[in-house]
Design a protein around this nucleic acid. Structure first.
Ligand SMILES: [Mn+2]
Ligand SMILES: [Mn+2]
Ligand SMILES: [Mn+2]
Ligand SMILES: [Mn+2]
Lengths: 218, 218
DNA sequence: TCCAATTTTTAGCCTCGTCTAATTTATTCG
DNA sequence: CGAATAAATTAGACGAGGCTAAAAATTGGA
């Protein structure tokens, strides 16, 4: 049985490896709003438990066992987010903190039944894939909207940052998972982009926003 | 914000006061499977926070504030139990441990929406009343089956102990919340009781069982 | 190459929640 | 009443998980 803190560290490592492919002590500390010295201790502990390998200055790698724990944690997090939005009517900008707590209730029967109850959803409210009970994740080939060129037509597949501010901004512009849009123009000066949603007037989004939108061919 | 341990101590005090009307250090320790010395420390801390008053050898009394926290914890516990049974198909003997964890996710929005989602249930799967969002509890006048006399006809309102063994025994005899039955005979020798459920053959139950069945007039 | 900046670790301290063992305090009973 | 018993507290320890400040290790730039 892992403690909450152990779980959170594993999840941080897992997330850093996914989108940056290295997990350094200082980055883990930053992500968990803690200090590097605290992370050093925890990495030692997790390495002793056979959940990861740590090479200073190079980074952390998860063992199969460690990755398994991380994936199950992600599974629980995303299932709860889905429950909160689909069943309890929460907004997609309101679920992260609560799911951050619920994810630590580690009970396989609970997790699997919740999964069934929700209809074994493939994606959470932010478009992120939900691992199945065996930890398998349906792969998708998406790219950031920010790398798209003028004239491309795409569909929003996921939001790769789940801060309230971004999510509410997207809400206010009518941009959500599944929204189809065409890139009209990209402005090299600031990286901003003019886009036109399929059903709506065109407007522009900043680089900060387009960077966090994962899209797939429409 | 209370820690998990603080919450569990408050709940233990609350429960002890409800069905014994005193809460002694040693009883709290026994209920939480911990030691009296640990409880002493925690009581000091909770008293400092204005959640309870402690008089050694006499017992603990909750302040309004402390009772409020305890009642909200009970509310969350029973709502989750209801969710697990009604929505996820858990047996009533399988929910306690999980609810013991879920109850500590303290988020008013979550609790209230879960309550709505379940249709503001008045009772949990064990027949225990669920406090409403203001902490109000619908009062009921029930008594233990063990104090009933021959010929009395009653309805099972609640099970006042939620150990797996008892619940599974009741399941196997077809005794559940709402079951109507008539007391045929009480045997003074061992306190066992012959009963006849409305729809079923008669059989006998031990004192241990009848003691934990709360009934109301049929 | 070698120095400066960055990253990581170490050392020492702290709080929280728990424990055991010893002690104190209250209650109960002969 | 006074002794035995029961209940509670105190004292001291420990592990988990965090912190700061200082030291050590590595990297990378001039
Ligand atoms: Mn978490
Ligand atoms: Mn998500
Ligand atoms: Mn609990
Ligand atoms: Mn219950």
């Amino acid at each position: 049985m892992l403690t909450r803190s152990e779980e959170d560290h594993l999840k941080a490592v897992y997330a850093l490896l996914l989108d940056g492919d290295s997990a350094l002590t200082k980055d883990i500390a930053h992500r968990l709003r803690t200090k590097a010295s605290s992370v050093t201790d925890m990495l030692k502990k997790l390495a002793d438990k056979g959940l990861l390998k740590h090479e200073p200055y190079y980074g952390v790698k998860l063992t199969a066992k460690g990755r398994g724990h991380a994936v199950q944690l992600v599974r629980r997090h995303r299932l709860w987010e889905t429950f909160l939005v689909q069943r309890l009517g929460f907004g997609w900008d309101e679920v992260h903190e609560v799911a951050e707590q619920l994810e630590h209730v580690a009970d396989d029967k609970l997790t699997d039944r919740l999964d069934d109850y929700l209809g074994k959803p493939a994606f959470d409210p932010h478009g992120d894939p939900i691992p199945d009970r065996k930890g398998r994740i349906r792969p998708r080939k998406t790219q950031r909207l920010s790398v798209c060129r003028a004239q491309e037509s795409v569909r929003i597949a996921a939001v790769s940052e789940t801060t309230d501010g971004l999510l509410r901004l997207l809400d206010s512009k009518g941009l959500r998972i599944g929204t189809q849009l065409t890139v009209l123009e990209v402005h090299p000066f600031d990286g901003s982009m003019d886009i036109k949603p399929k059903n709506g007037a065109s407007f522009s989004v900043s680089k900060e926003v387009s960077h966090h939108l994962q899209v797939e061919p429409a």
